[in-house]
Design a protein around this nucleic acid. Structure first.
Ligand SMILES: [Mn+2]
Ligand SMILES: [Mn+2]
Ligand SMILES: [Mn+2]
Ligand SMILES: [Mn+2]
Lengths: 250, 250
DNA sequence: ATATAAAGTTAGCCATGGCTAATTATCTGC
DNA sequence: GCAGATAATTAGCCATGGCTAACTTTATAT
């Protein structure tokens, strides 16, 4: 169990995980199509994964991930997504290309580097000297290699923005919201996790602390769960759990 | 020849290149030690590389890279170094760990992503809103998850710095230097490449344009060549070539 | 000069992970 | 229910890239 998975097997796990999310059943055909390999290769990989107790596999039967398989697959997907987000959001790489690159690089990036990468992306998104306009400045800088004449203006507006926020914070007028009031697609920064619910333990256990960036992914209609992404992890929070989390919109 | 090298063979090439730089002769023993593989594995790899015309290899003889081998090796080394610099300078990863990580990741990062990564690191080093204090801010942010209270101060000083530079630029008092007057370890930004010498063609051919960051690596004593690193490439410039390049110290 | 040590090569084993071709199982339409 | 199509498996091939063990070549010391 200490042995690490090969790049190939990680890709199979990832594929199975995604197919299982999309459709109900996972069949060798789906995997072969997705990974562009022959049926025979799929059978071989499934045998390996079954031997490692990561998938439930008996010939001609449906394919499912074991609990350990789900865990391993989630880890691969997380690496993929973190890399993808970095490539797109920070390096301004084309989306499709970022997907391909992420799927190549996801197998060789060490855990510690992953963690730092997440922290860095959060820092860029959070730090007033970073922020989205700054990143856009980079994109612009990439496309046109024109001189950056408006540097001073850029910093001045950044400073004003920061001062405004500081003033509001001082007067207790900070734009504090509850996580449950966010809309899908929005990003916010965690200010405080109140209560000692299961959710707060789960969150803190993932290294999510005040200051972390949370992205709202989906909100199920009638007071249903809220799906968020934080530090690359996907989390589903009940409405009452999301009530106890104070955030600041970015 | 269109076929791309495997990660393993790239590592052998990289090792041979480095050993050749350190000592005069390259022997299987050195490669085996460096890559922590058996002698037999080295022989096998050398046969592969010889067949691909990347090394000159006859049993019991010294090992040398062919011109194409040098080119391929340089490319691997460049990828390694660019990644290493990014990990250390931007992500603040520990130096030794960055080396290991770079050597794993160098084989799976696509060329286009490499290019963007270089541009990004240059942007961070060049943009007033980025800069070294900003990156240090990130390191600090990583170590202590204390609140960043001094954000405003940070931006103010950044603004003042920018204004000062802009004023100097306006009065024509810009701190313009010639590349040849730099000291090893210094980084500077290219302002202008004068003349149409071989060197300027070589430089421009590598995508090095005004705005690019150059790091001085070594200066040979009596008016000898100047070794610089730019966009991940190592370049050796003659003194008179370096004379024609105007730079601004960062 | 020759014995011994060290370095290097070869042969052959194994694991991984592709593939094709042949076979078997399952599904679908009539 | 059965024929033909589709899906899946098996067997076997090949390439890569590790390894060990046995051998050969080269270096070193007496
Ligand atoms: Mn992948
Ligand atoms: Mn992937
Ligand atoms: Mn490597
Ligand atoms: Mn390397």
């Amino acid at each position: 169990m200490t042995d690490t998975l090969t790049a190939s097997l990680e890709d199979y796990l990832e594929a199975i995980f995604h197919i299982a999310s999309d459709r109900q059943a996972v069949k060798p055909r789906d995997i072969a199509r997705r990974l562009k390999v022959s049926y025979a290769s799929v059978t071989g990989a499934l045998r390996s994964l079954a031997q490692k107790k990561l998938v439930n596999y008996t010939p001609y039967d449906l394919i499912t991930l074991t609990p350990e398989g789900v865990e391993a697959a989630r880890d691969v997907v997380r690496r993929h997504e973190v890399l993808h987000d970095f490539l797109v959001d920070v390096l301004a790489v084309d989306d499709a290309e970022a997907g391909d690159a992420a799927c190549l690089m996801e197998h060789s990036i060490p855990r510690t580097v992953m963690d730092r990468l997440i922290q860095f992306v959060e820092f860029v998104q959070t730090c007033p000297r970073g922020g989205s306009e700054w990143v856009q400045g980079f994109s612009h800088h990439c496309d046109h290699d024109s001189a950056r004449e408006n540097c001073e203006k850029c910093i001045v507006s950044c400073l004003e923005e920061t001062r405004k926020k500081a003033r509001q914070r001082g007067k207790g007028q900070m734009v504090l919201s509850k996580l449950k009031d966010m809309k899908p697609g929005q990003k916010c920064r965690i200010i405080k996790v109140r209560g000692r619910s299961e959710a707060s333990k789960r969150i803190l256990g993932m290294g999510v602390i005040p200051g972390s960036v949370v992205e709202i992914e989906r909100i199920s209609p009638p007071g249903g769960p809220i799906d968020v992404k934080v530090r690359g992890y996907h989390l589903s929070l009940r409405k009452d759990e999301a009530e106890g989390i104070d955030v600041e919109v970015i």
